[in-house]
Nucleic acid binder design. Structure first.
Lengths: 108, 108
DNA sequence: ATTATATAAAACCATTTGGTTCCATGTCAA
DNA sequence: TTGACATGGAACCAAATGGTTTTATATAAT
């Protein structure tokens, strides 16, 4: 439960190139906003907004540690995207689709 | 060549739910705008604009036939998305990732 | 030739988006 | 406890987005 009235979904969240970079940057690592924003040519506030949107889509989670807040990737919602994509894959590759489908269906 | 100065990329193109529905609708089929727009609660003009955006991202192609223009899905650009996704998959499923990678790398 | 149909294009509009600056609050260190 | 640092939030702004209505143009049918 706790369905979180998401204002932004995964599709919108990844539409922006800056947000896609953020996801890559936070993959594996856990970083505070200040440090994150030093990688980008915009203000810390702008980055904070992007992180909020990513949070709403649950692609990123932040935990407070002392006076800083550490953000990290939470990639599970991307599974929705993968599932969405799967529908269309049959329209461009048929070669290994059966094996792929087998893998897809057995990963949960 | 013919790099087409795309104003909209794939990520932006699929960010809108109406456009995602359009892609599903045009999968396999070839339909004229009028018929397409009858499936949606907005004007034909609005649909035409969405189709233009999808065209810019090359997710849809239209051929003129007499007085109507027939649109159909062109799913290849979604491969970019798949590739983008692949990077993140390692962060949420490790179970069958080796087999999956094998499949992925051998489909071209 | 005239009329109906299918799409295209232009002008307009409200809301959202992506950014800014400025100010407030909470936490750590001296 | 005073100051420095890290984040949060409000107010504001220009441009993009997603829609509309209206007008024009090309094709088909009678």
């Amino acid at each position: 439960m706790a369905a979180s009235a998401e204002k932004h979904d995964v599709f919108q969240a990844i539409a922006d190139p800056t947000r896609r970079e953020l996801l890559r940057l936070l993959a594996g690592k856990e970083l505070p906003i200040n440090q994150i924003s030093s990688h980008f040519p915009m203000t810390r506030t702008a980055i904070a907004k992007h992180l909020r949107i990513l949070s709403e889509a649950e692609l990123v989670k932040g935990r407070k540690s002392g006076r800083e807040k550490l953000y990290s990737l939470h990639s599970e919602p991307l599974a929705e995207l993968k599932q969405w994509l799967a529908f269309f894959e049959q329209y461009w590759d048929n070669k290994l689709s059966m094996l792929k489908n087998y893998v897809e269906e057995n990963e949960e």
